[in-house]
Design a protein around this nucleic acid. Structure first.
Length: 910
DNA sequence: TCGGACCAGCTTTTT
DNA sequence: GCTGGTCCGA
């Protein structure tokens, strides 16, 4: 026990050793939250509580793994493996699997990831022609489920049963589709588990203690689940911080903290107050920020480190400059600290993943290695999803969504039409898509269902491939990696990827190898707790879950960036680019938060300003020693920005410096103390600083204007420089202007077209009154498709219109013409008519429309734009060269000045 | 009816 | 910069 509490402060120690049954530990950023929780687990074990009777719930897989590792360091691998550590979803799924009969589930039940859910909803909405957005609907369903509300209950809560008919129907069909495909969506995992544990409390009879990390992020259903896990012994420890609640959009309920205290009145609360992570200056600004929220109860946060550097708030002209600045600051910081900081010590935290692009560009340009966390996830990559879908079908052919996705990938000449008719038929006959396909391979046609012979061949190929895979699997001598390889060969993935992604195919094939490696690891990977425990506690363990089912469930739940990459990157030190959300719980010596403007943070789509503020708070408190916020004057869409309202207030504003720190040697020493590393030698700092072009953050003016003056001491006169710059600016401006004009012009044209179209419709209507009984003409013009067509096709339609008008007037066989006009696929564009059209140009009022959509003027303009751009590029290159030259010379001058000032101190330099 | 070419719009955060 | 939708030729 002594060893467990060694190195803990009083509050932490109290939390770790507390005898309280129900314990809330409120832990602000950097207060050793994870450390306390892991130590408490170790203390419980030391008290003789059996590892398999402890549940530790986290929110992310990453957090679960980190926790797992840390606990292992305390209690050893054996005990750790018996603990039940994992995300809520994974633990819940484990219970469902082991008690599948009690839960009324098929033993092979799979997990529907978000792609599946959205795909199902899309299909339902399309089929029924509902006026719903699939994404919104998914969110709405999920939000209800997160509160523990299922469909029937929701219907009852409606005032009128007819209310929201489309939504309710969609939900109903969605649930039905999940059942047909034998799937649970993310929320269902939790819901089903709640009902299981309610009906069969004995499933968790062996559980002694439940610990929950990041409790402020639990939603209603997770809270219920926690209570149910602990229903026998009622021993619960939670750790959390209301200030870091950033998941209320996922229905996280901060009020769960209060509810917990109400439900278990003996709840003891312990506040951790000392911060071991960040410098005083960083904490101060973070505190100023979070205190803007007046509804928040005041809370102490005590710095243990020295005051340190003032955080930076940097203004820059554009998003590009901002990215460039970050890259140069990273380089400058590294050089001025003589590599005290590695690349992996820097993080760039963005509000939304899309913002990373400009930063990535700049880092690439400066050859700074980086990794993006939370970008395109491994399991979201096309080739991985494809293989997984094949595996899903092989494992369980009723997975119709997956089957639908792989049916024509790689192309088997099975198009949308064929697929729709197959789905339709399957639904009518109330059978799975697969069984229908199966039938197709035996009989060449089924009851009047038409499928082209090419498509039929394709179907046969697919079915036989899946069948032979299943044979492999069932024979029992194929491992998952072997199965994957079999699939890859069977669909000739290599050739397909090469054809489809000629440029990125290498990397994609690499991803496939990656998947193979992960599949090989599946049995040994975390968490193994579930199997161990079922043996030890003699819970019903007669269900032997196939490794493939387990692998697929893992893949669906594993949204975290892939584990292996993280491992590989240990050797290569990489700068981290991450969303703020994904950065929660982590820390870095130096943190950059770009794009601090209104619309980004707080995000324009966000409805909860306080949560956005907490988000910025989380971002700031990731930093140990150096924190830099930045804000471009112009965002990436050339729009003016307003500095984030969170930091423009004077209380916060005055905490910031307006440019990067000077990083004198004393600063380096201070930094090394904060991050607990040995300080580099002064002479090393000096020599590494010489590699820099400039050793201060003084290239960009602090007011965010464009740098115009460079060192006048250098050979380049400032006029020369300024005029060069001005000319580039002028040219750039003229490019922007012409681009703008072009845009406006196009908009104008579109408007004209629109007007004429309406004119045409009303003309047609008038005409219709003349030609009684020819209703088709008007309905043709009113086709929504026609309304949506681009300029080009509108032109065609219009030409056709006037042509038809002509034809109608001239040709006696009116009926024939009308029939053609009424055909929505524009077959009126028959050769004969077009020829006639060419021979006799149409009359006004439609004549101007017949001009080509890319007018010669446009071409001319485009060319000018291109020419201008090239000219500007050239100028810019020259300019850049000049500025580099200036920089070099300035650098020299600065270097000289520095040595004149006696720095580095004599004697220390070799 | 299918597949390739092109264009538009989008982009909050995650299990 | 990627996806989804639309158009058009075969």
């Amino acid at each position: 026990m002594d060893e467990v509490v060694a190195g803990l402060n009083d509050a932490q120690r109290a939390a770790v050793t507390s005898d309280a049954d129900v314990l809330q530990v409120l832990a602000p950023p950097g207060s050793g939250k994870t450390k306390t929780l892991t130590a408490r687990v170790a203390a419980l074990l030391a008290r003789g509580i059996k590892p398999w009777s402890i549940i530790v719930c986290t929110f992310t897989i990453k957090a679960a793994m980190e926790m797992s590792e840390r606990i292992e360091a305390f209690v050893g691998k054996e005990a750790r493996e018996k603990l039940r550590i994992g995300t809520f979803h994974r633990i819940a799924l484990g219970y469902l699997r082991r008690n599948n009969e009690k839960a009324g589930l098929n033993s092979k039940v799979g997990v529907a990831d978000m792609t599946d859910s959205i795909a199902i909803l899309k299909r339902i909405i399309k089929e029924n022609k509902y006026d719903l957005d699939p994404n919104d609907t998914a969110g709405k369903i999920s939000r209800q489920k997160s509160k523990g509300i299922e469909l029937e209950e929701y219907i009852q809560s409606l005032k009128k049963p007819t209310e929201q008919r489309e939504f309710v129907e969609t939900w109903r069909e969605y649930q039905q589709a999940l059942i047909t495909s034998n799937l649970l969506d993310f929320d269902d995992i939790l819901l089903r588990c709640v009902s299981l544990l309610r009906a069969h409390p004995d499933c968790v009879a062996g559980i002694d203690t439940v610990l929950v990390d990041e409790f402020q992020d639990t939603n209603g259903i997770q809270y219920q689940l926690m209570a149910l896990f602990a229903q026998h012994a009622n021993r619960i420890t939670i750790v959390g911080d209301p200030d870091q609640c950033i998941y209320s959009w996922r229905s996280a309920e901060v009020k769960n903290l209060g509810m917990m205290r109400e439900k278990w009145s003996s709840t003891i609360t312990i506040n951790l107050e000392e911060n071991y992570r960040s410098t005083g200056a960083i904490l101060h600004v973070a505190q100023q920020l979070i205190e803007q929220d007046e509804a928040r109860p005041p809370k102490k946060l005590q710095a243990t480190h020295e005051i340190g550097h003032r955080p930076v708030l940097r203004r820059l002209p554009t998003a590009r400059d901002e990215a460039e600045w970050i890259a140069t600051e990273i380089k400058r910081t590294q050089a001025l600290t003589a590599d005290l900081l590695e690349h992996s010590d820097f993080a760039i935290l963005v509000r939304s993943a899309a913002l990373s692009r400009s930063v990535e560009g700049a880092l690439k340009k400066h050859h700074i290695p980086y990794r993006m966390v939370g970008g395109v996830k491994f399991y979201d990559r096309f080739e991985i999803k494809l293989i997984l879908d094949y595996l899903r079908v092989i494992n369980h052919t009723s997975h119709s969504e997956a089957l639908g996705r792989i049916m024509n990938v790689p192309p088997r000449r099975i198009g949308e039409k064929t697929m729709d008719s197959l789905r339709d038929r399957a639904q009518k006959e109330n059978r799975s898509l697969w069984s229908l396909l199966n039938k197709f391979t035996i009989h060449d046609s089924i009851g009047g269902l038409k499928v082209s012979s090419a498509a039929q061949n394709g179907l046969k190929q697919l079915v036989s491939l899946i069948r032979s895979c299943q044979k492999q699997l069932n024979s029992g001598n194929a491992t998952i990696p072997e199965l994957i390889e079999f699939v890859v060969k069977g669909i000739d993935l290599k050739t397909y990827l090469k054809a489809k992604y000629s440029d990125t195919c290498e990397g994609r094939l690499g991803n496939v190898d990656e998947l193979l490696a992960q599949a090989a690891e599946v049995s040994s990977s975390f968490p193994v707790a579930i199997d161990e425990e079922s043996v030890l506690t003699q819970e019903s363990s007669d269900v032997v879950e196939s490794p493939l089912t387990a692998f697929l469930a893992d893949a669906a739940l594993a949204s975290a960036t892939d584990v292996r990459n993280a491992e590989e990157n240990v050797s290569a030190s990489l700068v981290t680019i991450s969303t703020i959300h994904a950065a929660k719980g982590l820390e870095w010596p130096a943190v950059f938060v770009p794009a601090c403007y209104d619309g980004s943070i707080p995000h324009s789509r966000s409805e909860n300003t306080d949560e956005e503020r907490r988000l910025l708070y989380v971002a700031m408190t990731r930093a140990k020693g150096l924190l830099s916020l930045s804000c471009p004057i112009q965002d990436s869409h050339q729009q003016q920005t307003t500095l984030s309202s969170f930091i423009s207030g004077s209380d916060v504003m005055e905490c910031f410096a307006d440019r990067g720190p000077n990083l004198r040697f004393s600063d380096v020493q201070a930094l090394s103390r904060v991050i607990h590393r040995e300080c580099p030698q002064e002479r090393d700092v000096w020599s590494s600083s010489k590699t820099l072009e400039r050793d201060q953050d003084d290239y960009w003016p602090t007011d965010g204007s464009v740098p115009e003056k460079l060192g006048e001491e250098s050979g380049v006169s400032s006029e020369e420089y300024t005029s060069g710059f001005a000319s580039v600016r002028t040219q750039m401006n003229s490019i922007m202007q012409s681009k703008h004009n072009l845009k406006e012009d196009r908009a104008l044209k579109r408007q004209k077209v629109e007007q004429t179209k309406q004119q045409a419709v009303s003309d047609a209507r008038a005409y219709q009154q003349q030609v009684s009984g020819q209703r088709d003409l008007v309905s043709f013009f009113q086709k929504p498709k026609a309304e949506k067509t681009s300029i080009a096709s509108i032109n065609t339609v219009q030409i056709t219109t006037s042509t038809t008008m002509d034809a109608l007037q001239g040709v006696s066989n009116q009926h024939a013409s009308m029939t053609r006009v009424s055909n929505p696929s524009y077959t009126v564009r028959s050769q004969a008519l077009l020829k006639k059209r060419r021979a006799e140009p149409p009359e006004a009022p439609y004549s101007f429309l017949s001009s080509s959509p890319t007018r010669p003027e446009d071409d001319q303009e485009n060319k000018e734009v291109v020419d201008n751009k090239q000219g500007a590029m050239k100028a810019a290159t020259t300019l850049h060269k000049t500025s580099m030259d200036v920089n070099k010379r300035t650098g020299k001058v600065l270097g000289m000045r520095r040595s004149l000032n006696g720095w580095p101190p004599g004697g220390k330099k070799n």
